[in-house]
């Protein structure tokens, strides 16, 4: 892929790749924007930039992340995602074949999710100004009925439910990046969660306080974020947290705390005590929530600590890290 010279031809080539992969009426119309109508009510909009190294990893690539991640951000409001946009910043020299692979997987991810990518943009930048390709997606969706999920809504006594095993995505990416080999292949959990969310909302929407997808920073960051926004604390139980043995083993080898590792197809729901059973049952009936588990409760705590009961009776504070996991033991 070259930058500058022959720009027009190249631009058309790239556009062709995306049009073919995302193909739909809106793109075919060839406008610089796309028009659509929405049903009345509250609308949500989100945008996110995606940078990941390596671009391809077991279970997905940067393109599937860009589709699933933005859909999930909409879904976490309890909303039904409708449309996406996608914008690409491509480094000069990036192999076209890789771009095609990314585009195709984005296309099929959006088709599977039923959320079309209806507008987009591409830019090619000089070598070294980007790392392969960066993707930015935005999305809009509609919130059903009177649903109103807010970051500060968690109350002491609320149940904390996680939709499935944690750490799969981060460990899959890291093993690929660090060139590691484990006995069992670890695959990213990258998935669109709006279907699961719809069943949860149908089963007990009025009881759901809020939902989050625990991406970067893992469920540790998510729970700490909710705790400080809702001014409560959490008590969670280490043994209840679903964790695949191979992910646990990889984390142990790498010295990572799975609670701090990213997920791309999981959600954390804080649910009022009355609705916890119904919501949990609905989640378990959905393929993406088959391993959903109640992992703890919100508690009154002015320090907003997330505390975890460990297997030997103690309780440790689950930290909110500024970045990667740094050593602490002196």
């Amino acid at each position: 892929l070259s930058h500058g010279a022959g720009g027009r031809a190249m631009g058309q080539l790239i556009e062709g790749i995306f049009h073919k992969a995302f193909d739909n009426d809106w793109l075919r119309a060839g406008n610089d924007q796309s028009a659509f109508s929405v049903p009345g009510g509250r609308m949500v909009m989100t945008t996110d930039g995606y940078v990941v190294s390596p671009l391809f990893f077991p279970g997905g690539n940067i393109g599937t992340l860009a589709v699933h991640g933005t859909i999930n951000d909409i879904a976490m409001a309890g909303a039904v995602p409708l449309y996406l946009s996608a914008s690409f910043i491509i480094e000069e020299g990036f192999p076209l074949i890789d771009l095609e692979r990314i585009a195709e997987s984005m296309g099929s991810a959006s088709r599977e999710a039923g959320v079309p990518i209806i507008t987009g943009d591409t830019k090619v930048v000089e070598r070294g100004k980007a790392d392969g390709v960066f993707i930015s997606t935005a999305g809009v969706g509609m919130v059903p009925g009177s649903l109103d999920l807010r970051a500060d809504a968690a109350r002491p006594g609320d149940a904390v439910i996680v939709s499935g095993s944690i750490g799969d995505h981060g460990v899959a990416v890291m093993s690929k990046r660090e060139n590691l080999e484990f006995d069992t292949a670890i695959v990213s959990d990258s998935a669109a969660l709006h279907g699961l969310v719809a069943t949860m909302v149908a089963a007990g929407g009025q009881h759901i306080r809020l939902m989050r997808d625990p991406t970067r920073g893992g469920i540790a960051a998510t729970l700490n974020e909710i705790a400080s926004q809702s001014k409560i604390g959490f008590h969670i139980d280490e043994e209840a947290i679903p964790l695949k043995p191979e992910v646990a083993a990889a984390c142990e080898f790498l010295g990572l705390d799975p609670l701090n590792v990213a997920n791309e197809g999981k959600l954390v729901a804080v649910v009022a005590p009355d609705g916890a059973d119904a919501v949990l049952a609905a989640m378990r009936a959905h393929p993406l929530g088959a391993e959903a588990t109640l992992i703890g409760h919100a508690v009154a705590d002015e320090n907003c600590f997330v505390q975890m009961a460990t297997s030997f009776g103690g309780g440790r504070i689950v930290d909110w890290l500024s970045g990667e996991q740094l050593p602490r033991i002196c």
Partner: peptide, 10 residues
């Protein structure tokens, strides 16, 4: 090298 951060200390 410090393979595994705090794990290496344990």
């Amino acid at each position: 090298p410090l393979p595994g951060g705090d794990r290496a200390a344990r």
